Amino acid sequence: MFGGGGMNPRKMEQMMKQMGIDVEEIDATEVVIRRADGDELVFSDPDVTKMDARGQETYQIIGEPEARESAGAVESGDVDEAEAGDDGGSGGIPDEDVELVVQRTGASEDAAREALADTDGDLAAAIAQLE
């Protein structure tokens, strides 16, 4: 798990528990990191460790990534509607978010869209505002 510089792994685990750090191995088959430029890093059969240090979760991925172009990337530089969130011309509020707020609160689409705009797209805050 960690290279403790020759330290006994049991002793290291005990010290981490004393410091309030919980460590958990995650049985992952694949990890995909989508980058802003549209490319992806794909880790097949990685070793993944989750560390929780007083509420702050950190994930460590060990493995060799394969770089590949995202399936949603378009060569001309255009972005397809699914990747853009298909906001329907509503100033950046995705229709899926509006539908979710409507389903959870029973509010009209206009009220849901307005609540999302007021909360800068924060779903939980928009739902709370309408409930």
Rank of each mutant, 00 (worst) to 15 (best):
G77T: 08
R68N: 11
D37H: 06
R35Q: 14
Q18P: 00
G85T: 07
R113Y: 00
D45K: 12
D47C: 00
G72C: 05
I26H: 02
I127Y: 06
A117D: 03
E57C: 06
E69L: 14
A115Y: 06
E64P: 03
E57D: 11
S90I: 04
A82Y: 01
D22E: 15
A107K: 07
P9I: 15
E131G: 13
D22W: 05
Q14R: 14
L130P: 09
D52M: 13
E99I: 02
A126D: 06
G121K: 02
A82S: 05
A28F: 03
S70E: 09
E75I: 12
D80K: 03
V32G: 02
V42Y: 07
D27M: 01
T49G: 01
G6N: 04
Q60I: 15
T29H: 00
G106Q: 12
V98D: 02
E24A: 12
D47N: 07
A111S: 10
E114R: 05
E25T: 09
A82G: 01
A28G: 02
I93C: 10
R113Q: 08
A67K: 15
D87K: 04
M1D: 07
D47E: 07
D122N: 10
G4P: 07
E57I: 13
E96N: 03
G55K: 12
P94C: 03
T58S: 14
E75Y: 12
V79W: 05
A125N: 07
M19H: 12
T49M: 09
I62N: 04
Q56A: 15
D37R: 09
V31K: 00
V74D: 02
G77N: 06
D97F: 04
S90K: 08
Q18A: 12
I33Y: 08
Q56L: 15
